[in-house]
Nucleic acid binder design. Structure first.
Length: 209
DNA sequence: CCGTCGATCTCCT
DNA sequence: GGAGATCGACGGG
């Protein structure tokens, strides 16, 4: 009942959504879905996802879990889908990922941008901004900061009432752009895979090169 | 508008 | 010792 009450705009995405094997398909389907947080207080913050990147676990050179590498940082990637993987990038920025697939399959989806819809004033405060524009939540580091997502929440369930997803828009394939992922030039042939997904024409996407 | 650069944690060589 | 799933400040055109 508590979880029902936590829903803001629609039904929560269930464990079965996250535990499917096809990380590329989930990466596409996450576009248009709502991501919400209620962290450090009563206020809900979030919006509709407009940009994702899929990381295909053991076989993907761009993945932290390539070759089934296990470190303290990446241990949560091996849990069953539906938990957060949050790590520190360049020593500064928390990057938020959704772990997908069955247990021991370390698939992850990086959430790169969203269209803010809820708790915009609190997100502005977390980002030390006064005006709402695309820089509030465009780019994975900016998005995580706006939502209050810190490394300490890595491993948190996405099925509870602190961090969760809800049903939003389902886009037609023609409304989705797929292109190469950002910042993984070291990944050889995997750097060329079109595993970054964007809502076509969205004004809220990152402009990373 | 664009390119450059510093910040500074985790993991790898 | 070096690089990285980044961002924002700064200086030049």
């Amino acid at each position: 009942m508590r979880n029902q009450r936590a829903a803001i705009v629609g039904k929560k995405l269930p464990a079965a959504f996250f535990r499917r094997e096809d990380v590329l398909q989930i990466g596409r389907e996450l576009l248009g879905q709502y991501l919400f947080t209620r962290l450090g207080g009563a206020r809900v913050t979030g919006g509709r996802i407009v940009e994702t990147e899929a990381y295909a676990g053991a076989t993907d050179r761009a993945s932290h879990a390539f070759g089934n590498r296990r470190t303290r940082r990446t241990a949560v990637m091996y849990q069953a889908g539906g938990v957060a993987y949050i790590y520190l990038c360049y020593g500064l920025h928390a990057l938020f990922n959704i772990i997908t697939g069955p247990q021991d399959i370390p698939h992850a989806i990086l959430i790169r941008a969203l269209e803010p819809t809820h708790g915009i004033d609190l997100m502005l405060r977390r980002r030390s901004k006064t005006r709402l524009d695309r820089t509030l939540t465009a780019g994975p580091g900016a998005l995580a900061q706006a939502l209050g997502l810190r490394v300490r929440y890595s491993g948190a369930s996405l099925l509870g009432n602190k961090i969760w997803l809800e049903k939003g828009i389902d886009f037609h394939p023609a409304e989705i752009v797929s292109t190469t992922r950002v910042g993984i030039e070291y990944a050889g042939a995997d750097a060329q895979r079109p595993w970054r997904f964007l809502v076509r024409g969205s004004a809220w996407s990152s402009r990373a090169k």
